[in-house]
Nucleic acid binder design. Sequence first.
DNA 1: CTAGGGTTAG
Length: 752
Amino acid sequence: MSAMSSPLRTMTERGGRRSLLFSENLKLSQLARSGRIEEAIKVFSSMTNRNTVTWNCMISAYAKNGRVSEARTLFDRMPFKNLVSWNTMIAGYSHNGCSSEAYELFDRMPKRDQFSWTLMITCFSRNGELEKARRIFDAIPGQKSSVLFNAMISGYAKNQRFHDAVQLLNEMPIRDLVSWNSVLAGYTQNEEMLTAVKFFNETMPEKDEFSWNLIVDGFVKIGDWKSAWKFFERIPNPNVVSWVTMFNGLVTSGRIAEARRLFDQMPERNVVSWNAMLSGYVKSLQIDDALKIFMEMPERNSVSWTAMINGYARIGKLKEAKELLDKMSIKSVGAQTALMSGYIQHNRMDDARRIFEEMHTRDVVCWNTMIAGCCQCGRVDEAKELFKRMPKKDMVSWNTMITGYAQEGQIDEALRTFQEMGDKNTVSWNSIISALTQNGFYVEALQYIMWMRREGKKPDWSTFACALSACAHLAAYQAGKQLHPILLKSGYVDNLFAGNALISMYARCGRISRAKQVFDELEAVDLVSWNSLIAGYALSGNGTEAISLLRTMERSGIKPDEVTFVGVLSACSHSGLINEGLDLFKSMSKDYAVKPAAEHFACIVDLLGRAGRLEEAYELVVGMQVEENAGVWGALLGACRIYRNAGLANIAAEKLCEFEPCKSSNYVLLSNIHADAGRWDEVERMRVLMKERGVKKQAGCSWVEIKNKFCEFFSDDPKQPGTAEICLVLETLTAQMRNTGPVLGLSALDCG
DNA sequence: CTAGGGTTAG
């Protein structure tokens, strides 16, 4: 008996040991996949028996969780490396975007197989280094598998090199579904839906659920849920992904009730479906409904918890959010970031900072959230410090800093950051362009848009909105006009931000009928669209039309706001509708519950002033309940100059110098008034005051658009080309205006 | 344990 049992026992022991090792290795890879890296480390260090697979698993575990340097340490220390070890380490670098490190290993490895080639091609492609990927591809000896072709095709397609992708597709010996879908994904994910549908209908010989889902997702991504629905209905065998993709399309277009109906109709639901419903409710801030789903759902993962915490955080129920986080057994980075973000949104920066500092691991999203939070509450120096401290920056980090600097008016820092960053995406370009427009550098903004197009970056709705806004502020009609067809072709016309910017551009360039046409052609309009149009009529001096638009706007169910009234009131004053303007001013607080601000008072002062009712205007300013500003006194001063009321002008100009102590033109005006009245001592006092306050004459500057080029003019600039001609034209114009137009002092033309 | 469609939720 004993002689027989001995070898048997040895065999089972060996088998047992082997199966134990196998199951421990399996456990390691499972932990790695679900992001439980700390547990994986524990398991690995407690293992007495390790084989090469164990080491490979642990390398992969580290790399998949962003700890690529620890993975490398393990790789260097492991007792025996096989081909998979090398491939795993390369994959690790690839997942973490380290293409040069990956290539260094690839170059040194003793033997290569299909995995190695494919990994390296994918790694370079992900990094946008397509030429390097192609060099690898071309150097592969012998027959290339379709997996290799597909990797290269996918790389081209993802990077919008559609021509190269299709060419390779045609060159490969045997195409399969992955090949077709790789090209299709390139189109759908780059918002090329026209080409995508054509490829889907006319080129692809066969389709699977992937193909259908890609099309639906592509339409969802561009916000066209109707087209998404058309294709969704035609899917022969929609799977869970199809349903969730369509569901997501309804949620992003704000149709939460319809989304709910679709959810109820789903033939099968997995945890992703439930999470989609949950976060759908969170997005539309229906937190009670979200909670109901959270309680109802049969299975929860960290995404579910994170979504719920995020929901509470967004409506300011921070106590509930924190309690939920405390209940999580393994607190994911995302969940902690959600609570942190809640604190940031509700101005509890210290609490946010505490969570941030206490976190064991932080991903790039967490860092970016904290940085954005600091920027939002004006702590840009703190943001800068964090930005320096963070171990790995992504595109979002850089873009956030650019926007942060811009909001603080630190345009030089924004420009420096933009130049310093390596790769730039559309958002980076948009960030710097909107930084420029927000700070009044309109010519520079247009310059950057030109550079952006030269770099081959596709403009999106934000680019168009900024470009058109710059044109509007410069009254650059030629440039703005040319943007219109480009916008039409781009497919962003129905974007309200772009559409409103277009209205505003035409309106401010004095093309009010074109503005109206754009307005009428928009699928849906909002308050901003109405305000832009009304402001346009104000600018063109058509008060009657502005008032009539206000009425139409009300009938369409949109309530006017303070901006609307600035438009309507200034329209009244520009077209001499005195009584209408005064009536509207009275009714804006009474009937519309819009509190008049200084800007509205300025309109009425201007209106009364133009009618010569200077005393009334003065009484209004003195008696107004809101804080006075330069605009109000400026309006009064303007009226005083037309009607030559030196006494009131003196008061207004004094006030103006109080509000804008650094603006030289105010002192000059006041000084001129005193000079007119022969009060030379006062003129002298002005001169001394200017010197005391350090007021320097600002160079007057203006732009002219000639043949798509912007010419900047500075006053008193002897280097200015064509000065003599310009002065001659100016003199002629002035003479003509003296004879025909309203009487203006020469100072009215003295604007550089 | 490592490659090609990074189809869906954060």
